[in-house]
Amino acid sequence: MSVNTNAIGGKRLNKRASLTDTNLLLIITIAVFFVMYIMAIVFLGKGFTKPQMFFNILNENASLLVLSCGMTLVMITGGIDISVGQVTSLVCMACAVNLEFNGGNVFTSMLIALGIGLAFGIVQGFLVAYLEFQPFIVTLAGMFFAKGMTTIICSDRVNVTEPGFDALSKTEVTVPFMGSYNKVGDFIPAFVEIGVIVAILVVVLLFVFLRWTKLGRSFYAVGGNNQSANMLGINVKLTKFLAHVLCGLCAGIGGYLFFLHARSGSPLHAQGAEMNAIASSIIGGTMLSGGVGNIVGTLFGVLSLATIKNIVTSLGLDDPWWTNITVAAMLCIFLLVQSVILARKNKNKK
């Protein structure tokens, strides 16, 4: 009986447990997103109040969302994967060539996408986890390998006309109860592309994975302190390996979503996507030092990034360089915030 009350007491205490790093950063991120979106509504008005505006952000960034989720996984274990952008590009090209020239269908192209992603994940994961090399160098090599392979497959833009694929890519899913009235007063329901459904599914799956599965928790343990994790009986190498494999898989899926949206393959696709993915993860509260991060945060990170890009363009700063500079500036600010948090924590410990 007394045990029971204690347990309940413990549970009540739960709510009073001080904020974990993950939650602290998550709150910052969500706040940043809402502030940004409200700013967009206040200053830019009109468009941003329509649900479709929000869903368009999703439509355009479904691929980035999946890539960022993969990146978050690797970053939680204390690694990084900068090959995802070029892998996306490679996936697009390989799928486009398969559909256009090699008589493939939607199914084969999906297999190819997943296969490429997995292959990169497995090789890079092996090099990082078992040969203990710096993830940055390994994935930098992976990035250039993917870049080269893309042009080796085909150096020009390939537009896809295969009917099955075309139908899939143009499928629009209506969002229930959402929409807006046009000037005439007709109700136009809001829609999302099929890619968004997939991306949301990935987000949900990975959220569950990180929160409730033992493997997911061991990602955090490894990132928190990999020596301790080893002592606690976690297979650190396997965990790191799997993180890279999952990230590779996400790159495959994200690549296919990009392909669905772009309906073409080109060496210029997804240029700099890895930077956006890293930036989204970091803005979403994933710590570079590992062990801290959250998929929900990443979701908001992607949304924040997309919103600020929209704001920048709407402000008339539509010269192509402004988006990059904005992304870099945001990345810089959030890195500094993390650095300060980390420094303060270390000081407190002393």
Partner: peptide, 16 residues
């Protein structure tokens, strides 16, 4: 642009 693929192979070999 394809050169980068070959160089990547060299890097990976070096890494190993």
């Amino acid at each position: 642009s394809a050169i980068s693929a070959y160089k990547a192979v060299v890097v990976i070999l070096l890494i190993i």
